[in-house]
């Protein structure tokens, strides 16, 4: 394990029966870094994210998060996670949703109220805070998901397809939010198919194909290397890995 890594994935494999979803992946994230996790559907991104959160155990290899085992709830108290698409509890409103997750995180009522006000404002749901979640659009649910992931002020933020369903303005706000987290020393690890957003946000990218990591490296180096943009790099990398 590399000392001081926010996330250290070391030679990790994970199989589901005879299918190897992740095969010998090694990846390290430094604190304060934003790392994009790219790949086609079924490449092993979500499986890797679930292992990072302690939701799945690796078949072999080790995953360390913030220096500990992610299956330990104490380690997870410093992690925020937003799933790809979640239909949050339809009978709650956004304020009640955050209050619920705040209680699960063990936050006291006063802190939950303060963080709820801050986050609803930050994700642009303050005006819809009293509406039942069943009346929310996909984009609004995505914003509620972002708010719940940030509720405990995590040191590591893990996001699965965070830009899905967000309108252009919301994307800009969300991008600013993530960059602000980076400025505060937080680590962000997200999977995405939105290559443009990834290029704008990330310090580094890792590209997965059929369970293998076929590329990892800094985005700026690549962009300055003459590659027109991340999309070209992505296609080229996948082509070469055939």
């Amino acid at each position: 394990m590399k000392s001081g890594s926010a996330v250290d994935i070391d030679s990790v494999s994970r199989s589901f029966g005879s299918v190897k979803a992740v095969d010998g992946l090694s990846l390290a994230l430094a604190p304060g870094e934003i790392v994009g996790f790219l790949g086609t559907n079924g490449a092993g991104k979500t499986t890797t994210i679930k292992m990072t959160l302690g939701l799945l155990a690796p078949t072999s290899g080790t995953v360390k998060v913030l220096g500990g085992d992610p299956s330990d709830p104490r380690v997870r108290s410093h992690i925020g996670y937003m799933p790809e698409v979640a239909t949050y509890y339809p009978y709650l409103d956004a304020r009640e949703l955050l209050s619920f997750y705040g209680g699960i995180c063990g936050l006291d009522a006063k802190t939950v109220r303060r963080r709820t006000d801050e986050l609803l404002d930050a994700v642009g749901l303050a005006d819809a805070a009293k509406r039942p979640l069943k009346t929310y659009s996909k984009g609004m649910l995505q914003r509620a998901g972002i708010a719940q992931a940030l509720l405990n002020d995590p040191d590591l933020l893990v996001l699965d397809e965070p830009f899905t369903g967000l309108d252009p303005l919301a994307r800009i706000h969300f991008r600013e939010l993530l960059l602000d987290l980076k400025r505060r020393g937080k680590t962000v690890f997200f999977s995405s198919h939105e290559l443009g957003e990834t290029e704008l946000l990330c310090d580094r990218v890792a590209i997965m194909k059929k369970g293998h990591c076929v590329y990892q490296g800094p985005v700026r180096d690549l962009a300055g290397d003459g590659a027109a943009n991340l999309e070209r790099l992505f296609l080229k990398t996948l082509e070469e890995a055939k």
């Binding site: 679930k50 959160l53 302690g54 939701l55 709830p73 104490r74 997870r76 108290s77 992690i79 996670y81 937003m82 799933p83 790809e84 698409v85 979640a86 239909t87 949050y88 509890y89 997750y101 699960i104 995180c105 063990g106 998901g145 719940q148 992931a149 405990n152 893990v158």
Partner: peptide
């Protein structure tokens, strides 16, 4: 499981038993 809220819930600092 259907709404996929189990994942953010399990990613919070709560053990499965609890």
């Amino acid at each position: 499981f259907e709404s996929r809220t189990i994942y953010p819930l399990l990613a919070k600092p709560i053990s499965r038993g609890r």
